[in-house]
Simulated assay, not measured.
Amino acid sequence: MRECTLDDLRRILLDLGGLDDPAVLRGDIMDTGFIELGYDSLALLHLAVRIETEFGVEVSDVISEFPTPRAAIGYLNRRLTGVA
């Protein structure tokens, strides 16, 4: 099973739309808060649905616990590899 990368997450976030300036997703955003990137709690629920659809891992009940892409990707990859 493949792991989730920052590029995967960035692609999903861009697909969700709603950003005033999509350029905020360029560069190293691993430790930038989702709120700082422009994603509110509703957008995070949409993100969770996309992750569940694409990766087959339920995260909607915990997505709000992960404030940054690093935290979300880490959790998802632990679930994908059976570590979490």
Rank of each mutant, 00 (worst) to 15 (best):
S64V: 02
P22M: 12
I73W: 04
D31W: 07
A43I: 01
L44R: 06
V49C: 08
M30G: 14
G74A: 15
P67G: 14
A23M: 09
G38F: 02
R2H: 14
L14C: 14
F55C: 04
D21E: 10
V62I: 05
M30K: 11
V24D: 05
D8S: 04
D40K: 02
L9R: 00
L6P: 02
L42T: 08
R79E: 04
L76R: 07
I51A: 01
E36I: 06
F34A: 05
R78K: 13
D28L: 02
L76Q: 14
E58Y: 06
C4T: 09
D21L: 01
I35C: 00
L44Y: 01
D21N: 14
Y75V: 06
Y75T: 11
D28R: 04
T81Q: 14
E52Q: 12
V49E: 14
L47T: 11
T81L: 10
I35F: 00
I12P: 11
T32M: 01
C4W: 08
S64E: 09
R50F: 00
L25T: 15
S60L: 07
T5N: 01
G33K: 05
I29A: 12
T53P: 11
D20E: 10
G56S: 11
R26N: 13
R78M: 10
T32C: 00
E54S: 06
I12F: 03
V24N: 06
I63H: 14
I12S: 02
I63M: 08
A23Q: 06
E58C: 07
F66C: 03
L45I: 10
Y39G: 03
M1N: 08
D61L: 04
V57C: 02
L47C: 07
T53S: 12
M30E: 11
E54G: 05
M1W: 12
A71D: 13
A23I: 02
I12L: 07
A72C: 13
P69Y: 05
G17F: 06
A72N: 03
T81D: 15
M1G: 15
R11H: 11
M1R: 09
T68N: 05
L14H: 13
R2F: 05
D7L: 13
T81K: 09
D40V: 02
R79L: 02
N77I: 15
L19Y: 10
V83K: 13
L16N: 03
P69Q: 12
V24Y: 01
E36K: 06
P69S: 14
T53K: 12
I35T: 01
A48G: 15
E65F: 00
P69L: 05
D28K: 06
L19S: 13
A71Q: 12
E54M: 05
V24W: 01
G82A: 06
L45E: 09
S41I: 02
P22C: 15
L14W: 09
T5H: 00
R10L: 04
R78G: 14
A84H: 15
F34I: 09
E52M: 10
I51F: 03
V62T: 08
G38A: 08
T81N: 12
Y75L: 05
Y75S: 08
E65W: 00
G18L: 12
R50D: 01
E58A: 11
N77D: 11
F34E: 02
L19N: 15
L9V: 01
A72D: 00
L80E: 04
S41N: 05
R10H: 06
L19K: 08
L6A: 07
R11E: 11
L25M: 07
D15H: 12
D8A: 03
L80S: 06
D28S: 05
V24S: 05
V83G: 11
S64P: 13
L80K: 09
